[in-house]
């Protein structure tokens, strides 16, 4: 077993070179490089968690804004609906008023026309009476030779006309 047979002659060099090379590994790799590798890992971990937190915050903000937008939208829609209803009511009232004035004018026209018609009829009646009275005078003078005054002739004619 060389480990034991060569122990006396080699142990110093074994220990010396092991301490040299393990020391190099410890100070150069272990102390020098490993902490920087671990820093990189830690840096990445913090960056990832930071990014995740930022993404979560952005999402919360988007949700909040959407909720606010929806609320605003609902309010605006309600406002629009109220506006439309108001306009509709106003238009209805206006058309009703205009209809009422038109109706009034039509009624007035109608009344006036009726008045005119009645007046014309009266006038026409009176004229017919006068003509009938004159005709009666004329007929009576020609047939009976009696001179009837205009008033009684007209009364007689009116009586006949009224009784048909």
């Amino acid at each position: 077993m060389p480990q034991i047979e060569q122990l006396a002659e080699t142990y110093t060099s074994q220990i010396f070179w092991l301490l040299v090379f393990f020391g190099l590994v410890f100070f150069v790799v272990g102390r020098g490089m490993v902490p920087r590798v671990m820093d990189t890992v830690a840096l990445r971990d913090t960056q990832i968690s930071g990014d995740l937190a930022a993404a979560q915050a952005a999402r919360d903000e988007a949700d909040r804004q959407e909720a606010a937008w929806r609320e605003q939208e609902n309010a605006r829609r309600a406002q629009a609906r109220a506006l439309i209803a108001e306009a509709k009511a106003r238009a209805a009232a206006e058309s009703e008023a205009r209809l009422a004035t038109a109706q009034q004018r039509i009624d007035a026209d109608l009344n006036e026309a009726e008045g005119r018609i009645a007046a014309s009829r009266d006038r026409a009646g009176a004229q017919i009476e006068a003509i009938a009275g004159e005709a009666v005078q004329d007929v009576v003078r020609r047939l009976a030779g009696i001179e009837v005054d205009a008033a009684s002739a007209r009364a007689a004619a009116r009586e006949v006309m009224n009784h048909g």
Partner: peptide
């Protein structure tokens, strides 16, 4: 006063140390 012969054992310690250094350098 003590023997520090550079043996095959020491050579392989050097190789192991260098290989480890090269491995970690690749991760830097």
């Amino acid at each position: 006063g003590v023997n520090i012969a550079f043996t095959n054992s020491a050579l392989w310690m050097a190789i192991a140390a260098f290989a480890l250094w090269a491995f970690v350098v690749g991760g830097m």
